[in-house]
Computed example of a mutant assay.
Amino acid sequence: MRVLHLNSPAKVGWVLAQAQRRLGVEATVVLTHSRHWHHYYDVDLTSYDTSTLSGKYSVGRELLGLVRSCDLLHYHGAPISRGYRDLLIWAVGLGKPVFLHHHGSEVREQQYPWLASRLSRHRFVSTPDLLSWVPAAEWIPNPVLLEQLPRTAPPASERPLLVHVPTDREVKNTEAVLAAVAELRQRDIEFDFRLVENCTYQETIAALQQADIVVDWVNPRFGIYGVLSIEAMALGRPVVCTLNPGLYEESELPVIPASPTELAGVLQRLIAAPENRKRIGVAGRHFVLKHHNPDQVALRVLRAYREWA
C-alpha cells in the first residue's frame, strides 16, 4: 500500500508515516505549507510562491504526480484550496480514496465543508472536542516520537521550574498563565518560570526536559490537552491543563486539571510536593506509552483504511 500524507501539523503526519513504514506501508509526507512547524517531511513544496499563478501551477503539477502514484491520500489539517475544492481532483478526477485528518482550527466552531463530507471516505480528528464539528469522525489520539522522548529526571534544584510553551498565546490562554505566575510571586512562593516561544522542535524538547512542571492549554473554550502535553508526559513531566471532563471521563488521563482561576492554587500545591510531581510524571509516561504509541495508532489507522477504502 502506498500512502501519501498531505501536510503534517504538529508532526502527526510524519510520526504516523514512520510507524506505517515499520508495518510495511510505503508512506510519504509532502508539505505544501507551514514548514516552520518542524523539519520532518519527505517532499517540500513550500518554496513555491503560491501568490502567483506560476507558483500555484508548479505546486499543483508536482502534487498531481504524487497523488497519482499513491493508493490512498491521507489529508491533514487545513485545505490547500478553499472548501476542500481540490478533493474534486483527487477523489473524483483521479479516483483516489481520501481520508481527512482534522487537527483544530480548520473545522472547530464552523460549519463542516460540504465537499469534505461528500468526497472523503473517512474522517479522523486528533482531539475529542472536534467530534462535535466533524460528522461521522473517529478520534485518533496523536502519536509522538517516543524514541526522541526518553523519560528523564528534571535537573536538581531547590526552585522548581514552571514552563509554558504557547504556539498561539490566545489559544493556550497565556494571559491566565502569566496571571497565575504573578499571583504566586505575590505569595512569595519560591519557583522559576520560563516562557518558551518561537523555538524549533529540538529547542522545545530541551526546554521541557529542564522543567519540573509544564503548563499547557489553560483555555476553557477548548478543554483539551495537545501534542506538547503528550511530549511533556512522555518525558515524565507533570502537565497542567484546563480540561472538559466530559471529553475524558472514561480515561485514566493523568493531566492535572485546573481552570484559569484555580491555576495559581494548583501550581502552588505542585511546587510544594516534589514526590507527587514524580508520581504524576511516572503515570504520564505510562499513559503516553499506552494511548499515544505511534505503532498502535498506525494499526488503528490501517484498520480504518481497509474498512473504508
Rank of each mutant, 00 (worst) to 15 (best):
L195S: 11
A283T: 04
K278E: 15
P274N: 01
L243T: 02
A27T: 04
V134D: 03
R169E: 13
T174P: 06
L289W: 08
E62M: 10
P160L: 05
P294K: 13
K290T: 15
A179L: 11
T261L: 14
N276K: 03
P160W: 01
V12Q: 12
E175W: 03
P166M: 00
Y225R: 08
R237K: 15
S105Q: 06
P274T: 09
L73M: 09
S229C: 04
I140M: 13
S54G: 01
R85V: 08
G226T: 10
S51E: 07
V30W: 12
F191L: 10
D168P: 00
G24S: 10
I256P: 04
R159G: 02
H122W: 00
L145P: 01
W308Y: 15
L267H: 15
S69Y: 03
A182W: 07
D216L: 05
R285V: 03
L73I: 11
P97M: 08
H101F: 08
E190V: 00
P155Q: 12
H76Q: 13
E175S: 11
R151P: 02
R82E: 14
A17K: 11
E62L: 10
S58Y: 01
W90H: 12
R187A: 15
V214E: 04
V144Q: 03
P143K: 14
A176P: 01
A206V: 07
D129F: 03
V92D: 13
Y84P: 10
V297S: 06
A272C: 15
